[in-house]
Amino acid sequence: MQITRLIAALALSVLVSGAASAGDSPDDIKIPAFFDLPAAADLKATAALTPGSAGYSAREVALAWHGLASLGEDGASREAIRLLDELPEVQGDALLKAYLGSAYLMKARDQSFIPARVRSVRRGLEILNEAAGAAPHDFRVHAIRAGSTMNLPDIFDYRRTVREDLEVALTMIEGGDAPVAGGSVTEGRMLAALVKVCLQSGEEACAQNRLRQLETDFSDDAELRVTVARLRTAYDAHTN
């Protein structure tokens, strides 16, 4: 029964990117990616290089393919997995492992054969969890795991992990221990993601506290103001 439910959920889901709609339930609100990527043309130019040429390392080429996968480039998720897996340092580098795990989730997003999609998700989660276990205080590892998994179907029961990752990352930003500044758009996107996840989980206090923070700091932000307003509508509908 569980595998039947899993297959049904995956068949109907877009695993990583999600899809926006006109409604204002939490599920309908799309949160932008936490980090801005280089332009697609720049990523393609780097991805086309042979490692070592033009001063680019194998790591940089692999991460360019990961960026292209994030943009939905056909075949990029598979190439990112291949190149990241070939890096000799990947087993000892938690950040690279996090990128590898997220590449598997993007591969699942791109697969049409449901059992293969399930295998890719499971492998991606395994690698992401290994990365987080190896580097529990690494901001980017937590951010990558949260961003990669926040749109997984409920059958994976992953929302609590997403919330924990976002709480850790936001605490680091607020304490000045993250590579991004307080008040940055990355912080705003993470706050919006946390409000959404708390609403989806029925955790009203978390949603209320973080929504107030989001409204105080980001209601006038050109990118986030519509998302903030939609989260407020969703919160009011949830609590009234």
Rank of each mutant, 00 (worst) to 15 (best):
L68P: 01
T216C: 00
G75P: 01
Q111Y: 00
D93C: 05
R159S: 13
N129V: 02
A22E: 14
A181I: 01
R145K: 14
R189E: 13
S184H: 08
E174A: 14
A54T: 01
L128F: 12
H142T: 02
I31A: 09
P153D: 13
Q2I: 00
G176A: 12
L84R: 03
R122A: 10
I114P: 09
D24F: 09
R159T: 07
L10S: 04
D24C: 12
A108G: 15
G124Y: 07
Q111G: 00
A20V: 08
D157R: 10
S120A: 15
L152S: 06
V61I: 13
S112W: 13
S57E: 09
D93N: 15
I3R: 12
R109E: 15
A22C: 06
W65A: 02
A45Y: 05
L224M: 12
A69D: 03
T216E: 05
V16G: 02
P179G: 06
K97A: 06
D36C: 04
A19F: 08
T46K: 14
T46A: 10
A9L: 00
T233F: 12
A146N: 05
P136S: 06
Q91T: 07
R160M: 11
P115V: 02
A178C: 09
L96P: 01
A94V: 04
K107W: 12
R5W: 09
G67H: 03
T149N: 09
E174W: 04
L95N: 05
S57D: 07
G75T: 07
N240H: 15
Q213W: 06
A48E: 03
A40Y: 02
V90Q: 05
F34R: 08
I7G: 06
L211W: 01
